[in-house]
Simulated scan of single mutants.
Amino acid sequence: MTEKTLFEPYALGHLTLANRIVMAPLTRNRAGKGFVPSEFAPEYYGQRASAGLLISEATQISQQGQGYQDTPGIYSPAQIDGWRAVTDAVHAKGGRIFAQLWHVGRISHVDLQPDGDAPVAPSALRAESKTFVNNSFVDVSEPRALELEEL
């Protein structure tokens, strides 16, 4: 790809991106109280708005979907307001941003789950992995299989 092509606008469906540069998502672990994007998130993403497309850090769809400490959610009014501040900052600079949504399944720990419950996953098989919780890396907890009526 030539430099000229890299910096030319690109049609992505109904969106026109300023260029073909995409900022990959990063797990920043910087959410504030209530898993709200931090007060610095609008500045962080706004500084990167000149990329053709920004993909946000992984954002859990529920607290049950959280797998790492201090990651933001998008399931409460306060979290939605936090992300609105981010998107407003990006849009004010002419940028485009997509949210990376996630539910981590079995890659979680009971300390991150509502009421200290086991994480949910397709099966009750514990992953051989670690997660970041309580400011350190620990083995993930054994999940419970999601019940059919929970789907």
Rank of each mutant, 00 (worst) to 15 (best):
D81M: 01
G65V: 04
A92C: 05
A51N: 06
E57P: 09
Q64D: 04
A51H: 03
S62R: 11
I61Y: 02
R96M: 02
P77Q: 10
A51Y: 01
R84S: 12
Q64F: 06
Q69I: 13
Q79L: 00
P72R: 03
Q66K: 15
W83H: 11
S76Y: 01
S56K: 11
L54M: 07
G52I: 05
T87I: 12
P72I: 06
A85V: 07
W83E: 14
E57D: 08
A51S: 14
G82R: 04
T87P: 01
L53W: 12
D88Y: 08
I80C: 14
R84Y: 02
T71E: 15
Y68K: 01
Q79D: 15
P72Y: 09
Q63I: 02
A51F: 07
W83C: 10
T71L: 06
Q69Y: 10
I61G: 12
D81C: 04
G82D: 09
G94D: 04
V90C: 05
G94H: 01
K93R: 15
Q79H: 14
G67S: 03
G67L: 00
I61V: 15
I61D: 10
A78G: 07
R84T: 15
D88G: 04
P72A: 10
E57V: 05
S76C: 00
D81Y: 00
T59A: 07
Q79Y: 11
T59M: 08
D88L: 10
I74R: 08
A92T: 14
P72G: 02
I74Q: 09
L53A: 13
W83F: 10
D81H: 06
S56P: 08
G65F: 05
Q64W: 05
S62Q: 11
Q66S: 06
G82C: 08
G94I: 07
Q64H: 04
Y68C: 03
G67M: 02
G95R: 00
A78Q: 14
A58N: 05
G67E: 07
G82K: 03
R96V: 02
K93A: 15
I61S: 12
A51I: 10
Q64Y: 04
I74E: 07
G52R: 03
W83K: 12
G95F: 01
T87D: 08
S76F: 00
V90S: 08
V86K: 06
S56W: 11
A85N: 12
P72H: 09
G65P: 06
P77N: 13
G52M: 05
A89V: 02
G73H: 08
Q69H: 10
P77V: 05
E57C: 03
P77F: 07
G67N: 04
V90E: 07
E57T: 10
A89L: 03
G73S: 13
V86L: 05
A92P: 00
S62A: 14
I55R: 06
L53R: 09
G65E: 06
G94T: 11
Y75S: 15
T71G: 02
G95K: 01
L54T: 11
